[in-house]
């Protein structure tokens, strides 16, 4: 009956979204008077999960799962859910989890609600609040099936410490034959990704050309932030498509989003509105971004950003 949660790791270490998903599963388990079981795949030390409310870990170690495969991972989760008799399964909103979840929903005959932002307001009927219309609204959705699958939005519920000690059990599910095979992975190393970043620094057409991105990268560097851009910037080829954020690009749900030379078109704002604190730097005081931002500087990016970098360096040196 326990609540099952998929806790993702990268090279053996848990991602923040995994700890957030575990915290969320704990909140549901408390409401339902049950425990939390986490599934880990090729993770090293699982004891940290106890700090976020996990009671039991099903530890899967299988080199056939080194590359992510939606069908195989969904099968692992299905077998774990059946073994635990789980009625609620929690996954995150990473690209991998969003790939796996619909497959798992069919396998488990589970109703699936994605982009969920809060603990369920009720567990019977099981009612969750989720983001719809790309952050322009919320829906209160009930999941009407016996088994429920919840996809948690990033940075919405937060990481909650909840001291427990997790018992660990080796788990060796059978794997289906893989018919989608990974040939190569091309991943930037040593750079924060937009998906994982606490802070995102984003540049728009106001920066005039790709040659001016040095200061955006420098600003991101001092802050330990990921870099992003508006759609026209990626359409013009100034920056790679993978940096395009907004309604038709990547969603951003960081703690801090800094927009430089971005006007704040409705499609841009929709995609970044889930960020907690928004800062805009723009020469035009009438730019719509000022209506969406928490802090703003009306000024020329080419003057303001270098100063901001200097101020941040001084600030960091004092920390």
């Amino acid at each position: 009956m326990s609540v099952l949660v998929y806790t993702e790791s990268d090279k053996g270490t848990f991602k923040k979204i995994a700890l957030e998903a575990a915290s969320y599963a704990k909140a549901i388990a408390d409401k339902m008077g049950t425990t939390v079981t986490a599934v880990t795949v090729n993770a090293d030390d699982t004891s940290v999960l106890g700090n976020y409310g996990v009671d039991k870990v099903l530890k899967v170690n299988d080199s056939n799962l080194d590359a992510f495969n939606a069908k195989s991972y969904a099968s692992v989760m299905q077998q774990a859910a059946e073994k635990e008799g789980a009625k609620v399964v929690v996954v995150s909103s990473s690209a991998d989890s969003k790939y796996m979840a619909p497959v798992l929903a069919v396998n488990l005959n589970a109703g699936y609600a994605s982009n969920v932002v809060e603990a369920p307001s009720n567990t019977s009927p099981f009612t969750v609040k989720r983001n719809v219309f790309t952050n322009k609204a919320f829906a209160n959705t009930t999941i009407d099936t016996d088994v429920k699958l919840v996809g948690l939005s990033k940075n919405a519920f937060g990481v909650v410490e909840n001291s427990a000690s997790a018992t660990e059990e080796a788990f060796s599910p059978s794997l289906p034959e893989s018919t989608v095979n990974v040939e190569s992975v091309d991943k930037v190393t040593g750079k924060v990704t937009i998906a994982d970043a606490e802070i995102v620094v984003s540049g728009g057409r106001g920066l005039k050309g790709p040659e001016n991105w040095g200061m955006i990268e420098d600003l991101a560097d001092v802050l330990g932030a990921a870099t992003a851009c508006s759609k026209p910037v990626s359409d013009l080829g100034w920056r790679p498509h993978s940096e395009h954020v907004g309604q038709t690009g990547k969603p951003v749900a960081s703690n801090l989003y800094i927009a430089v030379g971005i006007s704040g078109a409705i499609q841009h704002l929709a995609g970044i509105n889930a960020s907690k604190v928004k800062v805009v730097i723009n020469t035009d005081p009438e730019a719509p971004f000022f209506k969406a931002a928490d802090y703003g500087i009306v000024g020329d990016a080419f003057e303001v950003v270098p100063k901001l970098i200097e101020e941040l360096k001084t600030f960091k040196a004092q920390q």
């Binding site: 690209a95 991998d96 990974v182 991943k187 930037v188 990704t193 994982d196």
Partner: peptide, 8 residues
């Protein structure tokens, strides 16, 4: 994928 791409 998050932070890159994967060929399959």
């Amino acid at each position: 994928i998050d932070g890159g791409k994967e060929s399959v």
